[in-house]
Design a protein around this nucleic acid. Sequence first.
DNA 1: CGAAGACTTGACAACGCTGTCATATAATCG
DNA 2: CGATTATATGACAGCGTTGTCAAGTCTTCG
Lengths: 327, 327
Amino acid sequence: MEDVAAYAGVALKTVSRVVNGEPGVTPGTAERVRAAIDQLGFRRNDSARILRKGQTASIGLIMEDIGNPFYSVLSRAVEDVAREHGHVLFTGSSDEDPVRERELALAFCARRVDGLVVIPAADDHTYLLPEMAAGIATVFVDRPARLIEADTVLTNNVGGARDGVNHLIRGGHRRIGFIGDAPRIYTSMLRHRGYREAMSAAGLRVDDAWVTMTTPTTDSVAAALRQMLAGPAPVTALFCGNNRVSVAALRELGPLSATLAFVGFDDFELADLLTPGVTVVAQDVARLGRVATELLFRRLAGDRGPAERTEVVTELVRRGSGEIPPP
Amino acid sequence: MEDVAAYAGVALKTVSRVVNGEPGVTPGTAERVRAAIDQLGFRRNDSARILRKGQTASIGLIMEDIGNPFYSVLSRAVEDVAREHGHVLFTGSSDEDPVRERELALAFCARRVDGLVVIPAADDHTYLLPEMAAGIATVFVDRPARLIEADTVLTNNVGGARDGVNHLIRGGHRRIGFIGDAPRIYTSMLRHRGYREAMSAAGLRVDDAWVTMTTPTTDSVAAALRQMLAGPAPVTALFCGNNRVSVAALRELGPLSATLAFVGFDDFELADLLTPGVTVVAQDVARLGRVATELLFRRLAGDRGPAERTEVVTELVRRGSGEIPPP
DNA sequence: CGAAGACTTGACAACGCTGTCATATAATCG
DNA sequence: CGATTATATGACAGCGTTGTCAAGTCTTCG
């Protein structure tokens, strides 16, 4: 900037004014400065600007895995809102590892992001308290913060699962299986609860052999299916707790999927192309990201109200697999 | 940091030493400083550090749309390599818009990222020359840079498309259709070339009605299919230029997909679950991202060789749809 | 024509950190 | 025990901006 100033024969500050479009510079002078900038290929160093202003115009997003379509769609929604506010976006994948989540969060905070959107993996977020006290706005998405008060945007997990299971019950099913992700995962736990609630509200018994909750692998899902389909009273319908589980189960079921009624939590691409089409409880992932990020920017704009908790509703999308009648 | 120093009764510089784990601090002093840090909730301000050191330990990734699984997988690979090198990652979606790509690139550069991984949309990248001259390493992925010399990592598009079409030809097909994305897109253009090459190498004629290249929409793909399946000599096989086109075509084909041989460029989730399973020319997207980012860090480590151009090979994955014989 | 006001421009400090170099203290050795 | 060396600590400048305030120039109007 000093070089530009010298080249244009003005003071440093005048260059700063031109660069930032501040008023009070004669058109002629401004033109000379711009020419010098072009000539010298000058670009403002935002690091210095950030240091001086204390505002980075950036936010951080921490999720489980950006490679997973669920999070990538969410990520895009967050990016769009950030962009509307002139912010750029840091992204990081925690792989469900609390240590890594913390590392990422602190790395972003050290870079003085203005705010943080977190899909939490940790079960203790007190490590964020000093950062939040220091003014870094934080919104939690998809799962709530643990041990601290914070803004949260969630899907209606219990209600959605209940809707899905009720759909099967209305179809005449009485023996319905459930395969979910590991129970320590918040959404997994709630969807399981929704399943139990729907069953018990309909006066239906749940056999232990019908329920499996674990990180889904080919083997674990195959075992779960064997277990619930064996014996004299096999399940006639299956509810899956998320899209990874659904896909694994459908893969394992193979041709059997034509006769076993199926509903999954989470929509996924091509669900409509399979035969039969896969009935799902769809979450509006983009909306989740959008709502959360808009809340974040409301905070950044100065909203100091108490922590908010928003729920985004789900939608039952019927495609055929949920409408298979019991044998 | 000054507060911490005062609290611990040492000089600023000593705090700096402790924070950075520099040698030459008595254990007792270090302990006192650490206590003060905890007490005051101090966190180093990386903005200042960056300004001082001139190194941001961050890289930027610009792609078409992080919400698209292709890019999100790539993004994850880039993130992993960045992490191995202790860098954080900015991401941004250009939506194929040259202006937006440029804005993002310059925004990242202004924040003084150490390097840039770009999946280009623009057809002129000279705007990056000053930045590259200023030392920002840049690697282009999936498509080459335009009008400048730069490191590039590409998929073997022509060869992959040729392989896919040859597979159909070996299956006995002589009338093979092609639906690709808009011809201005680099990969689209090359895959089209591969299709033409394979056909002409086999001495097969290509009817104009068999080829459509445009941004895929439900309507455009439906029209393309109608056109190539009408008349006395309809195509007996179809090759699609990317996964979006493939999915749209499969959706439009419906039950017809059981009789029309099909191969698509790009793998996609659940391709194995459809009936028949979808044969694809798979690119190793994660590898693409990994190779590119490793190249970037080689540059950052000081490698000043001439611009490199690497190709990543494709793999034909047979699942059934490509093995349907001609009627 | 002189004073008040409006506008343009510039000098300088400060943001929070790290690198350099100087100084004070402790350890080592002939 | 004094001289030398190793070690621990601190003072200070400077990274490239922007905010503050003062100074200079040009209008305007009584």
